[in-house]
Design a protein around this nucleic acid. Structure first.
Length: 180
DNA sequence: CTTTGGATCGTCT
DNA sequence: GACGATCCAAAGG
């Protein structure tokens, strides 16, 4: 979880589409009742227990994909959910992928929205975000993480909802509405 | 602006 | 068989 705020301001790259990470949430394996990894490894969450730097994509509510960056050691099951991006490049493609968006800030201001905009789905589960030439990559363009990131409770969970494991870039218009 | 309910199905018990 | 790490459109103030 210590690494979660350090993901802020990194770039998520998928082909010509690029977004800057502006909101994340940490999920801590077996120590965290809200985590998919709570209760051990299973078919769906296997990627969480793999090497750090890989992409964990899961399907939820019968229609949505969400993307996480695996952050723990092998066998631990820690991951960080990417909740929002600021579009940087390929914005036209994002609009095509997300006809429901009304304003640019709606393109990637939510975990399922950004997967839609970026074209990320279950086919990308388990791939290495740090490998050169990968379909989805995590890059550092030199922009440092905020010195004092926003910090507060996680969103959309019923268990352990009080743990302040959500971080965001203060003031970013692309953070989920009502949460910046 | 806020609140509400529907959509929709893989996963685990 | 129940329940989501959600989103959106519609309705109400």
């Amino acid at each position: 979880m210590a690494v979660a705020p350090r993901l802020l301001n990194l770039l998520l790259v998928r082909g010509s589409r690029v977004g800057r990470i502006v909101e994340v949430e940490a999920y801590r394996g077996s120590a965290d009742p809200a985590s998919h990894a709570f209760g051990g490894r299973s078919r769906r969450n296997a990627t969480m227990f793999g090497p750090a730097g890989h992409l964990y994509v899961y399907f939820t509510y019968g229609m949505h994909w969400c993307a996480n960056v695996v952050c723990g050691e092998v066998g631990v099951g820690e991951a960080v959910l990417v909740r929002a991006l600021a579009p940087v490049a390929g914005v036209g493609e994002m609009w095509s992928a997300r006809p429901a968006a009304r304003q640019e800030r709606d393109l990637c201001s939510g975990p399922a929205k950004l997967c839609q905009a970026m074209g990320i789905d279950g086919a990308h589960d388990g791939l290495d975000l740090l490998a050169a030439g990968g379909a989805v990559q995590l890059l550092d363009d030199g922009t440092p993480a905020p010195r004092h990131p926003g910090n507060g409770p996680r969103v959309g969970i019923s268990k352990a909802a009080d743990r302040p494991w959500r971080w965001w870039v203060p003031g970013s218009a692309h953070v989920s509405p009502g949460r910046r």
